[in-house]
Design a protein around this nucleic acid. Structure first.
Length: 275
DNA sequence: GGAGTTGTTGTACC
DNA sequence: GGGTACAACAACTC
């Protein structure tokens, strides 16, 4: 379940494998993954002959930078990339294959097929869905206290769904929202606009800090999720609340509770996070 | 067979 | 009409 730290880990790993590689052919076995352009044949035509120059990231999106196009990729639940020699048998859930002129292939695998790809002419990618409505990346300088406070001040929603809203800040998913709120000792059912300035700054600081620690550890490995080169992320050892239901809180030893907030499973320590 | 998973879309409501 | 809440949806595993 890649959130920002997992996507960043994938970006760093994958970059080395694709840079300066030229696409000779593209195979799409599950066309629904390709959202832009409408026509999958057009998608292939535009990509063939293009060379990878960089991989960037915004929130949970990977941006593959080519000569004339940018491929915007969201992994959703279980999307994975890997690079193999083309002789290597493809996996059962390989849905998109970019064959390089050097005989290797970049493969997109996705058991649930929830992932999406959008191809845009270079420098137009931020003008369209899905990137045009995104808020700042938490590591971006524009994720300031003033910005964040204003955004939270004018929403009456609970703080948890507000943090999951990618138009406020982009990159947080269920794991890191629960961890950030725990770290900030704020209950997920607090209304966003009731947070004090000090609390907003605390949440902002802890958002950045939690994500940075997770990036440093290569992300979180849960269930079968393994990053591009097979390395396991290690952040799961640092989790205080996510997936820790009934386990003693690492701070106060009270059992961690699970509740539902905005339709999402939510983990809290009832003692550390008072309403 | 229902819950869970992400983010988008549609609908209802105030 | 904007903000909010909720359900449905994509597809699959457990």
């Amino acid at each position: 379940m890649p959130e920002l730290p997992e996507v960043e880990t994938i970006r760093r790993t994958l970059k080395r494998f694709v840079e300066q590689k030229t696409i000779e052919n593209v195979d799409v076995f599950w066309p629904k993954i390709i959202k832009q352009p409408d026509d999958v044949e057009m998608f292939k035509t535009q990509l063939i002959g293009q060379t990878f120059h960089d991989i960037k990231r915004k929130g949970k999106f990977l941006l593959f930078c080519l000569d004339d196009y940018v491929l915007v990729s969201h992994l959703r639940m279980e999307g994975k990339y890997n690079v193999w020699p083309k002789e290597e048998p493809r996996q059962k859930h390989t849905h998109v294959v970019f064959t390089f002129t050097n005989g290797e292939e970049l493969r997109y695998n996705d058991v649930r097929k929830f992932g999406t790809m959008h191809l845009f002419p270079k420098d137009t990618e931020f003008d369209y869905n899905p990137l045009n409505k995104l808020g700042p990346d938490p590591f971006d300088a524009s994720f300031t206290f003033d910005y964040f406070y204003e955004k939270l001040k004018k929403t009456t929603r609970y703080i948890k769904p507000a943090l999951l809203d990618q138009s406020i800040v982009t990159g947080l998913g269920n794991i890191y929202v629960d961890e950030t709120l725990f770290k900030s000792r704020i209950h997920p059912l607090r209304r966003a606009h009731t947070l004090t300035k000090a609390e907003v700054e605390l949440v902002r600081k802890n958002t950045i800090e939690t994500l940075q620690e997770a990036v440093n550890l290569g992300g979180t490995t849960i269930r079968s999720y393994v990053s591009t080169d097979g390395d396991m992320g290690m952040f799961q050892q640092e989790l205080f609340v996510y997936g820790q239901t009934d386990e003693p809180c690492k701070i106060c030893h009270e059992p961690i509770e699970k509740l539902k907030v905005g339709g999402r499973g939510t983990h809290i320590c009832p003692t550390c996070q008072k309403k």
